[in-house]
Design a protein around this nucleic acid. Structure first.
Length: 326
DNA sequence: GGTTCTTGACCGTAGAC
DNA sequence: GTCTACGGTCAAGAACC
């Protein structure tokens, strides 16, 4: 517990290499796009921004797919019910259920696990307060769990009906002292929250065209780093503490939910997190399920753009990163 | 009036026999 | 193969804004 293992299964160097190659390609396309956008009147040959965008998306999609293949080979997807978390609510059924104690004292696998849940990626978080992750959830059920003092609450994305978002989460209070809340996320968001969509995305919707906004006047939300890319910024990482401090409600929202810690991806330094690993080697999937999810690919990538104040926040179009040759 | 919550019923899964 | 127990989801009514 608490130790996040290496996100890269060492037995899949081919997929990893492919992912890196795709990311490099995507960066090259992005660089070309930047040149075009900075010099819209200049001659860029036959390549246009409209041509580059699909290539960029394809590169990222391929990278995600490669990573996803890598992850799945390490059994990322797992029923959280079988996750070994040191909590009474997780339930050693044999210890309390006297009626079955004579059958077996060994805790077997839980029954009643839906196949759908096994197919979707899941990850679990522990926090001192119910997590407000900024997403719109709608409660659809509550269930008393065997050997658990508190009921388990079931939530699904508000956009399930209108956008078919399959993301769900379960929140259950543990019997720990002080009480903790275990939040299990199942599946990734495939919805777009229009209230948080960046301007370039809205423009593309309204104009039925791809429009990237690199305008500098768009306010940066320093206090709300984008969950996925925030780990690329070391100044933000230190803010990432999974367990929230009850006495400080300002820390209620923690970006670490989607956070790529240094272990998830080898770009930055440390990022403390208590995202509970589903299985050894599955931690990376726990944190950024959406990115690794093969079922979403580019659409999921779109979601990671949603909520950003500016596209520039993501790519940081700066020469020192992209080494633009102009 | 629309949205969200509550809660009992139903369904799917898997261990036991 | 059937029974049983359990977790997960559905859906109707209630509550809320």
């Amino acid at each position: 517990m608490g130790t996040v293992e290496s996100p890269w299964p060492e037995n899949s160097p081919i997929n990893r290499r492919k992912a890196i190659n795709e990311l490099v390609r995507g960066r090259e396309f992005t660089t070309q796009l930047q040149i075009i956008l900075r010099n819209p009147l200049g001659g860029h040959g036959s390549v246009s921004a409209e041509d580059l965008l699909p290539k960029i998306l394809t590169s990222f999609t391929e990278a995600i797919a490669a990573l996803n293949t890598t992850v799945e080979s390490g059994e990322v997807s797992q029923n959280p019910a079988s996750t070994h978390v040191s909590s009474p609510s997780c339930g050693d059924r044999a210890t309390e259920d006297s009626g079955e104690s004579k059958k077996s004292t060994v805790l077997k696998d839980r029954r009643g696990s839906y196949k759908r849940r096994k197919l979707l990626q899941t990850w679990t978080k522990l926090s001192a307060t119910p997590i407000d992750d900024g997403r719109a959830w709608r409660k659809y059920g509550q269930k008393v769990i065997l050997n658990s003092k508190y009921p388990r609450n079931y939530y699904r994305c508000t956009h399930k009906n209108d956008q078919g978002c399959q993301a769900t989460k379960q929140v259950q209070q543990t019997e720990d002292n002080p009480p903790m809340y275990r939040t299990t996320y199942i599946g990734d968001h495939t919805c777009i929250d229009m209230s948080k969509a960046p301007r370039f995305l809205l423009d593309s919707i309204h104009n039925n065209a791809f429009v990237l906004s690199f305008e500098p006047e768009a306010p940066r939300k320093q206090d709300q780093p984008h969950p996925f890319f925030s780990c690329f910024s070391p100044s933000i990482k230190q803010e990432c503490k999974e367990v929230e401090i009850p006495s400080d409600p300002t820390h209620k929202q923690c970006s670490s939910e989607y956070h790529l810690s240094h272990d998830e991806i080898t770009f930055g330094s440390s990022c403390p997190t208590t995202v509970l690993p589903s299985t050894p080697g599955s931690d990376h999937g726990d944190v950024i399920s959406g990115v690794y999810s093969g079922s979403t690919s580019s659409r999921s990538l779109d979601n990671y753009f949603v909520g950003m104040s500016d596209f520039d926040d993501v790519f940081h179009f700066e020469e020192d990163i992209f080494q633009v040759s102009m």
